[in-house]
Design a protein around this nucleic acid. Structure first.
Lengths: 210, 210
DNA sequence: GTCTATAGGCGGATAGAC
DNA sequence: GTCTATCCGCCTATAGAC
């Protein structure tokens, strides 16, 4: 076992990061207790400060790693040579899968980004985000000008896809409360959305719709 | 001035509630400082404890009032005698307007609801939520069976409307970062969505779409 | 590297004068 | 009702033994 990329659960450092992901993403930065993270990682509280100088530094590391995963999903939009439709289907499905793993993650990311508006740009300078956006934006424009989809702005299309994919997972407590859903029903509803959302988006882009 | 319903800003109690709304909804329950709320309300910290026994009680009052406003918007869905389409348009527009006033509110509502899963049901028992849902659900079913809209489940329709309306406002920091938007551009984009989202939903319900 | 014990401070809450 | 001063617990962080 010399796989340096694999997450080694026996490694304290990796256990801490996994524990911190869970605790931060459910309780937020302020609500999280170093003791909670230590317990979750089956480690002494003092060891947290041995591996990571302080809470803020631990948080920023987790923050960055979570977002890197999310952003890398964007590459499904430009990476391979699939059709426009298939790219959207892949993106929706990936996005829902990732968010489902840490459903509260967008909550704390957005809360912290609001408290510290520079956080995002501080952590993600020089990442290939602009390029991905540009390429997907161009792709949308090509589809529009060739008449394969109806005229839409890239921005609104992107926001629609993200909203329909991410929000339902994040808003689980509210949705289950308002619609009176059990946990199982909620989960299969989310599962359905991996295709349902893509269907909606594709249908909406059809140039021959009303 | 004997209007007991109007919010009297000279009344300390009302100033505190307004201040607490702002502070809680931007910093969350744990991140909010009683001192911040006191400053924002231009009042002494001790007075907070005079008017509201403790932080938790102040929080629960704000929580309940914010959610009551959101839920009451649901009544746009069933209240008057407008057409199905107009009800959806009214609901989308109202929802975006309310959320825009306290954009971070869903963040802290959802975060707290996750930390304390009983919170929602504890605070909202006996409210006319079930009735509104039932009436709107029936309405959807009638539209479907009469062939005026294509077959959809009420649940997924509701979730789509909510996601498209609420999430973009909530996710402002992320959207502006990824799409490189200035504050002004973002706001007019949101304003556009008041009709754009309704258009999308209505178009999607058309039984003669592809 | 691991752990115990403890420092140190922040922030919620209260006492008590006015 | 309003304010100052202060208490006290909780939680981050570190010192220091092993």
């Amino acid at each position: 076992m010399v796989d340096t990329l694999a997450t080694d659960v026996s490694d304290a450092r990796e256990r801490i990061k996994a524990a911190a992901s869970r605790v931060f993403s459910t309780k937020g930065l302020d609500g999280a207790r170093m003791q909670d993270i230590a317990d979750e990682a089956r480690i002494n509280k003092a060891m947290l400060h041995y591996y990571f100088r302080n809470k803020q530094q631990l948080f920023e590391m987790i923050f960055e790693e979570l977002l890197t995963r999310v952003f890398s999903a964007l590459e499904a939009l430009v990476a391979d040579h699939a059709s426009f439709e298939d790219r959207i289907r892949a993106f929706v499905s990936t996005q829902i899968t990732i968010i489902s793993e840490f459903p509260a993650m967008p909550l704390f990311v957005l809360l912290e980004a609001r408290k510290d508006p520079e956080l995002l740009s501080r952590k993600f300078v020089g990442k290939p985000l602009d390029m991905v956006r540009q390429r997907f934006s161009d792709m949308v424009d090509r589809e529009v000008s060739s008449g394969r989809i109806r005229p839409v702005t890239f921005d609104q299309l992107f926001i629609n896809i993200l909203s329909l994919s991410v929000y339902p997972v994040v808003a689980e407590p509210m949705i289950r409360f308002v619609l009176g859903m059990e946990s199982g029903a909620f989960q299969s509803m989310i599962e359905n959305r991996k295709t349902l959302v893509a269907d909606l988006i594709i249908r909406d882009l059809n140039p021959f719709s009303i």
